[in-house]
Nucleic acid binder design. Structure first.
Lengths: 301, 301
DNA sequence: ATCGTGCGATAGGCAGAGGCTATGGAGATC
DNA sequence: GATCTCCATAGCCTCTGCCTATCGCACGAT
């Protein structure tokens, strides 16, 4: 049994006419007759009574017709469904990202992506890089934005650098302006508002201070991104955040760090062994065009 | 898209293994790979992610799988349904027959047929030959038992003689026994119980009397078969009926007609231009074996 | 590090299936 | 009775699907 045979069969059933059915399916009449015969032979039953000038379904033909129609409709559905995935009219991307990027980069990028492909479902997992790497490996995520370098002993992931973010110091607009530009060493003794454990920014900042030979002092610690910014706004201290996040908090004073400053590298990661779904690759593309077009520094040359 | 490709696709999806899938569907592994590739190319999307040692469905594959399963299940159903018709496990016969045969021949034959093929639906249309011929031509009946010869101007029907029935005279067991054997001429003046118009038996009997030069006289006329027998039983007169019917009315006196007597020829008719359904052909076969095995005379040599 | 092993992809050849054109033959039509 | 319509048949060609043989690659064991 073959799809063409069913197609021809339905055409004959509907036209009650071999020659016209052949025209409809764009084959010669003998080819159509031959295929109908082959189908009848395989099923072991005549499907049409070929009375002169009056082709009619036999009982076997009547039994086959609805199933043939359904099979053909299903094949069409299959084609359409796959096409919708291919053409990004439907689909799903499971994207992991650290909180700082969810606040800074993602809103605009996801908005742009959604405008391009409104049929694609976007699932965001907001976690530290460590968790994201694990979820990627499990197959629970298609893509993740991660802070480089990845934790040691990472599973086989492919990473592509997306952008470098400069870190800046934010402080309350009401407080006295700090010296500009701020050096890391200037943060010694400075009251800091610090993220909870798990933020890459925390590890990065603390490591930088230790490299300068001091332990940073926290007035408040443990909050998420929004809370940290709120504490800073309330004058509880200053915080080190990505420039992209600082740019969005317009009522805070933003001070750059003195060279060489602090920067972190954001990369897009996915499993090396399986190609991400079409929609995920498209999101990756949009992320890159946004990354290079936006204010942050693009990937290293 | 082809059925085999879907079959191979489902096999790979279920085994997650090209080589084992190829074994399962009894083709070589390259052939299977090639067909999967062809399917992927036609659909324009990868269906499997071929990670080393871990073949997995892509999103397109996930979308296709349920439809592929359903399509394959439908083809199997189609095969089975047609087979059931072919093997007479299912089906329908629309049989027309005159009342005398519905009373005489059919009960036993239909019982035998039903025992052979309990899944076949039997629809009986009880009418005069004239109506039956019309219904056959319309396609409302598959087969009809008709009294020969057919009415003039019959549409293109194929008839096969089934049996010759002798007509006999039945009379009340309580009434005085008629002379034996009765001649047609003896019916002159004899009170007759006569069927309603439309019975072939009526036309046949009246024609026979007229051929002898007299008009038959009816005490009661217009009843169906059962009513006529009842009137005879009640002593209202005698009636001319087929021997097969008379044999079933055991409380009536049955008297043969003197040679050459009266007989009628029963034939099986169907449209010449379309072959009857399988079940109808089978009923035809059973009718013949019953006709030759039963008490009546078989078809003319 | 090297080799063996398992697995999917690739190459090349063969046979069959399905398509086409041309033609046959049986009813219907004028 | 000539013609027309329409489905079946015949013969040929191409393309496809299957096969065997082999490659390439990653992984595991030695």
């Amino acid at each position: 049994m073959q799809f063409q045979q069913l197609l021809y069969f339905v055409a004959v059933a509907e036209t009650r006419h071999f020659t016209r059915a052949a025209e409809r399916v764009h084959v010669s009449q003998p080819s159509l007759s031959q295929q109908i015969r082959a189908l009848e032979k395989e099923l072991g039953a005549e499907l049409f009574s070929r009375a002169r000038g009056n082709v009619a379904l036999t009982d076997a033909g009547e039994a086959l017709l609805p199933l043939a129609r359904r099979i053909l409709a299903d094949t069409e559905t299959a084609r359409v469904e796959v096409q919708e995935l291919v053409q990004l009219r439907r689909g799903r991307v499971r994207l992991g990202a650290p909180p700082s990027l969810c606040t800074g980069l993602l809103p605009d990028v996801l908005r742009a992506f959604h405008d391009l492909h409104p049929g694609i479902e976007l699932l965001i997992e907001e976690s530290g890089s460590h968790d994201l790497v694990r979820e990627l490996a499990r197959g629970a995520l298609d893509l993740a934005l991660v802070v480089m370098p990845l934790p040691a002993a990472s599973p086989a992931l492919t990473t592509v650098e997306l952008l470098h973010e400069d870190l800046v110091v934010v402080s309350s607009a009401a407080a006295p302006a700090p010296r500009r530009p701020v050096r890391i060493a200037d943060l010694e003794g400075e009251p800091l508002v610090m993220f909870r454990h798990g933020y890459d920014l925390r590890e990065l900042t603390v490591a930088a201070c230790r490299a300068e030979g001091f332990e940073p002092s926290f007035t408040v610690e443990g909050g998420e991104m929004d809370a940290v910014l709120g504490f800073v706004r309330a004058g509880l201290g200053v915080a080190v955040v990505p420039s992209m996040v600082a740019a969005r908090a317009r009522d805070l004073r933003v001070t750059a760090l003195a060279r060489p400053g602090l920067r972190r590298t954001i990369a897009i990661a996915h499993r090396s062994d399986v190609a991400p779904p079409r929609a995920a690759r498209e999101l990756q593309r949009v992320l890159f065009s946004a990354g290079t077009a936006g204010g942050a520094t693009g990937p290293a040359a």
